[in-house]
Design a protein around this nucleic acid. Structure first.
Lengths: 343, 343
DNA sequence: CTGTTAGCGCGTTCAC
DNA sequence: GTGAACGCGCTAACAG
């Protein structure tokens, strides 16, 4: 059974021509009902499965979409994949997932590999290290529709689905302000990511609006590794006026930071308040998660970007204008009674 | 630039024949050095990318391997994917990842979809609901090499890469025994999974060896959902002699169970000890993770299964005999001083 | 060393 | 209604 059944074989078995079989299989009205039924039956019997290669060769469609994201281990991205799968599989597409691991070189290779595979479209959440977007330009040159989601490139005209993290940052500051906290630091992500900018903007705007203390020494960026996050935390804690609260790039960074505090005898969320982005489900298992987190709705983001991509694939012509979708965030409070905060 | 460059175009540009170009591109020694160089140059200039469809049509190889696993959100599986990617991409293969979400119907559909896509091989960790393996038989019929990993089917002769969880269970009981704990319950996974059997065997054997109290009421299975896990926990806690320790199917189940305890005013790891399987990195962020967990080395498992699969793909003939690889586990203690346990 | 040709599986004219 | 023939991009005999 190693060799696959082809329309040729079923044509021979039925003593009819190949093209008749082909047409019958496509429900072409020009084929007689009984012929069609006989063909269908035989196809069933012989376990016929159309060869996608032949199809691709003629139609230039792989029904495969490629996804590049930093890491699957982060729940945000694995949830996004789930959203993408949901939308895309319903339309008969497959998903080719690859991790850039926040590495520029790897990301570039993945783009090349998708070019080779002739995927019908690409979804990207760019790597933390990536500074320029020439490799993505290639996709456009070859006419492969591309949609960026969450980690969207700065200054690059392209289809984008992103979160309103700026608003999220503002709400986070508001929340802290309402709790009477005034000295708030920002532990941000790599500055080449637009999502970092937005956090910074929201943070600065909110600080300004509330006439809060603002100092460059209260703003640091981490390369997202645990080591670097600890280094930045060491800086914060060494300040003459250490922050009362820290707004962190995402839940993982917050967790690293809180770990550091614990190791230094500082009680997270009691001595220093932590707020972060992502609101990962896994934090629900923690006795002491970040005090609050900005929900970014990964499932919805996955779905929306997949839908956008599919529509781009459908009408390739209309690609002259770029579409940008912004999803609103929501600050989720992690069930802290005010008494927990002793400051 | 929408239309792809073909060898035909570069042949025309150079005024040579198509096959010469083809051979030059393959570094066929029969082609003269200068011709080859000219071809390479032109290919570069025209941004030539070989069309995989044509290749597939001739060679019947997609250089794609399909992966079916329950969920990417569980760190164990996303780490396994990383291991798989590492091995497979180095050999020029792509990875088609799909989630069964522990659903039998979905798993079946995914197999069909892989059949259609003509992947070169399949890696599977079977869904929690799956009871029979007819759909996997299909893969074999079509000559698609298949390797099961972690959640391997019971009683099905096939290539398997799995963990020695039986040994892991024994070590877990040993650890509890050494701490003076005697009444140990097992909160197991679905009984149709072989990995559940193994846990049960290890548990029973160890209990017997230590002459420990054993009762059917101290053995329950969960369908892996939070709700059902809570139900089973309610049962345990309602017993006249509730367990002093619970061995859980994996970290997530342990976390659910511990959550339930907390909600009932029972202190996890103090009033009841929890030990689980997987030892997910994420638990390192918890102040009170399971007391110990059986490390299953997902990265290594991913790598080993990918390697096995690739070797099956290489020599299709030798498929007469099935290969089974067992990876040893390791009980990781989560840094608890004995004084923490007040029982 | 290089060119010619057939064919991989399928859809699609164009004839009949 | 149906069949013959061509071509998608490429490799691999088979000729020179």
């Amino acid at each position: 059974m190693r060799s696959q059944t082809t329309i040729k074989q079923i044509a021979q078995a039925l003593q009819i021509s190949i093209s008749t079989v082909s047409r019958a299989l496509q429900n072409n009205p020009r084929i007689g009902l009984k012929t069609r039924e006989k063909v269908m039956e035989m196809a069933q019997k012989l376990h016929y499965i159309p060869n996608p290669a032949a199809m691709l060769l003629r139609k230039n469609q792989t029904f495969t979409i490629g996804v590049i994201l930093p890491t699957l281990t982060e729940e945000f991205f694995s949830l996004a994949i789930t959203g993408i799968e949901d939308v895309v599989m319903e339309k008969g597409y497959h998903v080719l997932v690859s991790q850039s691991r926040d590495n520029y070189e790897r990301e570039k290779q993945l783009v090349d590999s998708f070019l080779r595979t002739r995927v019908d479209g690409v979804l990207v959440s760019v790597a933390g290290q990536t500074n320029h977007y020439a490799h993505f330009k290639k996709l456009e040159e070859y006419g492969i529709p591309t949609v960026f989601f969450d980690r969207v490139p700065r200054n690059l005209p392209a289809h984008k689905v992103r979160c309103n993290v700026e608003q999220g940052a503002k709400e986070a500051i508001q929340y802290l302000y309402d709790k009477g906290i005034r000295r708030i630091a920002l532990l941000n992500g790599p500055s080449n990511l637009a999502v970092s900018d937005e956090r910074l903007n929201g943070y600065l705007t909110a600080l300004h609006n509330f006439h809060l203390f603002s100092s460059p020494r209260h703003i640091r960026t981490t390369n997202l590794s645990r080591e670097d996050t600890w280094t930045q935390m060491a800086h914060f804690l060494s300040l003459p006026e250490p922050p009362e609260a820290i707004l962190c790039f995402n839940d993982y960074i917050a967790l690293y930071a809180m770990q550091y505090c614990s190791s230094r005898g500082i009680r997270p969320n009691q001595d220093i308040a932590f707020i972060s982005f992502a609101n990962l489900p896994i934090t629900q298992f923690m006795d002491n998660p970040p005090m609050a987190s900005v929900e970014q709705f990964p499932l919805q983001m996955g779905k929306e970007s997949a839908e956008l991509l599919l529509s781009c694939i459908q009408n390739q012509e209309t690609t002259s204008t770029y579409f940008e979708k912004v999803i609103e965030t929501e600050l989720v409070i992690h069930n802290f009674s005010d008494s927990d905060h002793t400051l």
